[in-house]
Design a protein around this nucleic acid. Structure first.
Lengths: 165, 165
DNA sequence: TTTTGATATTTTAGGCGTCGATATATTAAT
DNA sequence: ATTAATATATCGACGCCTAAAATATCAAAA
């Protein structure tokens, strides 16, 4: 009996029908995929490790930057506002998974780093996380995944340009 | 001078590097695209119409179902929890854009419908919304968009199956 | 040096979103 | 007809998230 979360499983995409522009349907399908996967990952992280997705994401950024990151860097990379990063960091600090160190170069700034426990904890979770992702994409063959990867690069360029970089 | 929101513009994808599995990089790229587009749409809806994305989404569902939808239907289609729908609906009711009618068939349920004003208001916003989406995808050619559409269908199938329908 | 403008972070207020619990109604089984 | 199981929606607590304003520092120009 795998636990079904209270959140419903289906179709954001239901919004789109014949009269809508193809681009709109394409966008809604993109969204549906993302929501599906994100909701799944979110609930598994919660169920199996008692952590939230944003906290996991922040730790993930830090694990890849052992020298640490400034709050503003985290904000850019996570694509969320600075105020948001403040809150998430506060929580992780309280849990002992992360530390704020004063920047020697700039007294306005902090350098956020994983603690040894944070690093240990993250690596364990990341392993499962990667497995889950692999499972979610397993229904596509190698070639499809490669094509999708390339097309998303094109989409990223297109949207970045239209959104004003 | 187009207004730049306080939210940073770049790369969730920064998380992925060489040592990560290809699937993980594919997922992070998907996420980066979605965030980019969603953030853009969110701030334009706010700036130009003073509405939030979730409220727009809910109205969007209702516009396509003139007979109205039960709270639970909205929850499924929007891929969010029931409690969440309650809150968003409350706000839209307070703004006079939506009504909760008692279901004649089932006294537990409500049927939510757009008011005439809600419908009028939505149609005006939807026009702009669609234009924005078209702009965001404009950097891809017809063929690329078609391929992406098909590949996302495959992803949706794959992820739905792995997530347990 | 003082001012000016930009940058780094936090704070505040309010909306979104989840989970788990509750109240109520429906449906099925006894 | 009573009971039990299931379904619909709301509520409360808590965390995420944004936008806008406040605070502090830096860097460069006057």
């Amino acid at each position: 009996m795998s636990k079904k979360p209270a959140v419903a499983a289906s179709d954001t995409e239901t919004r789109a029908t014949s009269e809508h522009a193809p681009d709109l349907r394409l966008w809604l399908r993109t969204l549906a995929c993302t929501n599906l996967i994100e909701n799944h990952i979110r609930s598994r992280l919660r169920a199996e490790f008692g952590i939230t997705l944003p906290r996991f994401d922040l730790m993930s950024q830090l694990e890849r930057s052992p020298q640490g990151l400034k709050m503003g860097e985290l904000s850019k990379r996570m694509m969320v506002t600075g105020g948001n990063v403040t809150g998430i960091t506060d929580q992780l600090v309280a849990e002992g998974l992360v530390v704020r160190e004063d920047s020697p170069k700039d007294r306005r700034a902090y350098i956020v780093k994983l603690t040894p426990e944070g690093r240990r904890s993250f690596r364990k979770m990341a392993e499962s996380h990667e497995t889950w992702i692999v499972e979610l994409f397993a229904g596509m063959d190698e070639k499809q995944r490669g094509q999708l990867y390339d097309l998303l690069a094109a989409l990223k360029r297109s949207a970045s340009k239209a959104a004003g970089k």
